[in-house]
Simulated assay, not measured.
Amino acid sequence: MTLEVSNLVGGYSQVPVLNDVSFDVKNGELVGLIGLNGAGKSTTINHIIGLLTPFKGTIKINGTTLNEDVKAYKQQIAYIPEAPIVYKELTLKEHLEMTMLAYNLNQEDAWARAHRLLKKFRLDNKLDWFPDNFSKGMRQKVMIVCAFLTNAKLFIIDEPFLGLDPLAVNDLLNLISDRKKQGASILMSTHVLDTAQRYCDRFVLLHNGKVRTEGTLEQLRTLFPNAGDSLNDIYLSLAREGESE
């Protein structure tokens, strides 16, 4: 079990946004985190990566909490944010070097992997460029390359398809598939439900800071037989039901 979120209550300042959220992501599994804007997806992710401290509950990665061992906890995570975060003063090469140092990677192996990733995302001729001047899609590709450069056990990917061209989307999905086969776990937040339906193993549907339901697509279809067959149908049905409560 890579990620275990148990009875998480959290939010910003003293205002709870999440209320008793529990779910897990197993080894070699892609779990889709689904919900309306404001449902608590980003707040959940910020707690997992350590930007927010839970009011109550626990978050473990391979049995380790952030409080028990900060370095061991964080080195198991690779995070791709919705809004790319790059440093104005650093070139693309320096971003990669910083990632290698942060994750204590073997330089020779890391650069071999980096060159393959750079070529895949058509960034191999831009090592001396400054990503701060790139388009959003290109900056997103920098985030993807930096994340998949690591040997992370848990990949947290927040709205990865926004701004990416179709070829890059396909390349990212192939990378996710490859890392799953190697035993890594992926938690992906997305509104692109048709893609989520095709690639995710399970789904966690958040609504108003609570887990409304979770399971495979087949389990969701069984639980909500009148909602429709697609993830989009089920999601819309639950969202409307939640709004009327």
Rank of each mutant, 00 (worst) to 15 (best):
Met1Phe: 11
Thr2Pro: 13
Thr2Trp: 10
Leu3Lys: 07
Glu4Lys: 14
Val5Gly: 07
Val5Ala: 07
Asn7Gln: 14
Gly11Ser: 05
Val15Trp: 04
Val15Thr: 10
Val17Lys: 07
Leu18Lys: 01
Asn19Ala: 11
Asp20Ile: 00
Lys26Glu: 12
Gly28Gln: 00
Leu30Gln: 04
Val31Ala: 06
Ile34Leu: 14
Ile34Trp: 01
Ile34Cys: 08
Gly35Leu: 06
Asn37Tyr: 07
Gly38Asn: 07
Ile45Asp: 00
Asn46Met: 14
Asn46Glu: 12
Asn46Lys: 15
His47Asp: 05
Ile48Arg: 01
Ile49Ala: 04
Gly50Gln: 07
Phe55Pro: 00
Phe55Ser: 02
Lys56Thr: 12
Gly57Leu: 07
Gly57Arg: 08
Thr58Met: 12
Thr58Leu: 13
Ile59Cys: 09
Lys60Gly: 10
Lys60Met: 13
Ile61Pro: 07
Asn62Cys: 12
Thr64Met: 13
Asn67Phe: 12
Val70Leu: 14
Lys71Met: 13
Gln76His: 10
Tyr79Val: 04
Pro84Asp: 04
Val86Cys: 04
Lys88Glu: 14
Lys88Gly: 13
Glu89Thr: 11
Leu90Asp: 00
Lys93Glu: 08
Glu94Gln: 11
Glu94Val: 08
Thr99Ser: 09
Thr99Asn: 04
Leu101Gly: 11
Leu105Met: 13
Asn106Glu: 06
Gln107Lys: 14
Glu108His: 06
Glu108Asn: 06
Asp109Leu: 11
Asp109Ala: 13
Ala112Ile: 08
Arg113His: 08
His115Pro: 03
Leu117Gln: 00
Leu118Ala: 04
Leu118Pro: 01
Lys119Glu: 10
Phe121Leu: 03
Arg122Lys: 15
Leu123Arg: 06
Asn125Arg: 14
Asn125Leu: 13
Lys126Ala: 13
Asp132Val: 13
Asp132Leu: 10
Ser135Thr: 05
Ser135Gly: 07
Lys136Arg: 15
Gly137Arg: 06
Gln140Met: 10
Lys141Leu: 02
Val142Ala: 05
Val142Tyr: 02
Met143Arg: 06
Leu149Met: 04
Thr150Met: 01
Thr150Arg: 04
Leu154Asp: 02
Ile157Leu: 01
Asp158Glu: 06
Asp158Lys: 03
Glu159Thr: 03
Pro160Val: 04
Phe161Pro: 05
Leu164Val: 06
Asp165Glu: 07
Pro166Met: 03
Leu167Phe: 11
Ala168Asn: 02
Leu172Tyr: 01
Asn174Trp: 01
Asp178Gln: 13
Arg179Leu: 11
Gln182Gly: 10
Ala184Val: 00
Ile186His: 02
Met188Trp: 02
Ser189Phe: 10
Ser189Leu: 11
Val192His: 12
Leu193Trp: 05
Leu193Ile: 11
Thr195Phe: 12
Ala196Leu: 09
Gln197Thr: 09
Cys200Lys: 08
Arg202Leu: 02
Phe203Lys: 05
Lys210His: 12
Val211Phe: 01
Val211Trp: 03
Arg212Val: 12
Arg212Ile: 12
Thr213His: 00
Glu214Met: 14
Gly215Pro: 07
Gly215Cys: 10
Leu217Phe: 01
Glu218Thr: 15
Gln219Asn: 10
Leu223His: 14
Asn226Trp: 03
Asp229Met: 14
Asp229Ala: 15
Ser230Asp: 01
Asn232Leu: 15
Tyr235Phe: 15
Leu238Thr: 01
Leu238Ser: 05
Ala239Glu: 03
Glu241His: 15
Glu241Asn: 15
Glu243Ser: 13
